[in-house]
């Protein structure tokens, strides 16, 4: 018996070499400039289009089962006429110390060598644990196997699985685009360059508020922006070490901000 346990532990160790979480190939990071974001939600539709997100309909929306991996949160402060509105796009923060990963009983969500928090649909058994552990409420559950009325299914992206009932899913940082960029780079025998990868949300953003890149590369745009004095991370005090960095919005405290 103990021999068997030792073998299992050894097997696990071989997947969890020392430094597995610290020496990453890449550390994909997103920087979102809240001073540029105007809340137009172009990114939300881009995400639906890229990642085969189903439209669930009015009744399911009412049960808060809408699928948006990426949402624009909106906060309203004050009373008329001193109303302040703030927008923030929230998607999976790809935490380096992700609470969801510790919860999954079947290792369906784990951290890979790119610093991504990934979800393996084939492993997922739908215990919902990760969604309850998630700090940012970004995980979405397939309550049903959703259908696309013909011929809408012709639009489905062949690079992304169409998920079935009972599976948890979430933002992947458009891992299929990362994969395809790596593929192209490999064909050209070069490392992935900064700017090769643009997730769908970042690509579509009319104001150019969403930046994406490898923060381990000191020359990358995200590495430079990450040093901005406006930088902060969402609910940083919870210590989940998220990979999404926000740049604070510049905003007056009252209406009489002119000099």
């Amino acid at each position: 018996m103990s021999g068997l346990l030792e073998r299992i532990a050894g097997k696990l160790r071989s997947y969890r070499e020392p430094g597995y979480y610290t020496k990453l190939d890449h550390k994909w990071t997103m920087v979102i400039d809240l001073d540029k974001c105007n809340g137009c939600e172009a990114c939300v539709v881009a995400c639906y289009a890229e990642n085969n997100l189903p439209v669930v309909g009015r009744e399911e929306c009412e049960k808060s089962r809408a699928f948006s991996w990426l949402r624009i949160e909106r906060y309203v402060e004050g009373e008329y006429p001193d109303v302040k509105v703030k927008f923030i796009p929230v998607m999976c923060q790809h935490c380096m110390k992700a609470p969801c990963e510790t919860g999954c009983p079947v290792y369906a969500t784990y951290h890979n060598q790119d610093g991504l928090n990934v979800q393996v649909y084939n492993r997922c058994v739908g215990t919902f644990t990760c969604a309850t552990y998630c700090t940012y409420d970004v995980r979405r559950f397939n309550w049903f196997t959703y259908k696309w009325p013909k011929p809408l299914e012709a639009q489905l992206n062949p690079d992304v699985s169409v998920r079935e009932m009972g599976v948890m899913e979430k933002c992947t940082f458009c891992i299929q685009r990362i994969r395809s960029a790596k593929d192209t780079a490999k064909d050209e025998s070069r490392p992935v360059k900064d700017g090769d990868i643009k997730p769908a949300c970042s690509q579509s953003c009319p104001t150019g508020a969403i930046y994406f890149g490898d923060i381990q590369d000191p020359e990358s745009v995200v590495a430079k922006l990450a040093k901005s004095p406006r930088r902060y991370r969402l609910l940083e005090e919870l210590n989940a070490d998220p990979s999404v960095i926000y740049l604070k919005r510049v905003m007056g405290d009252g209406t009489s901000s002119h000099e």
Partner: peptide, 11 residues
């Protein structure tokens, strides 16, 4: 402190 801000003068 979800959407954090800085004032224009601070910026």
């Amino acid at each position: 402190g979800i959407v954090q801000t800085v004032s224009p003068s601070e910026f």
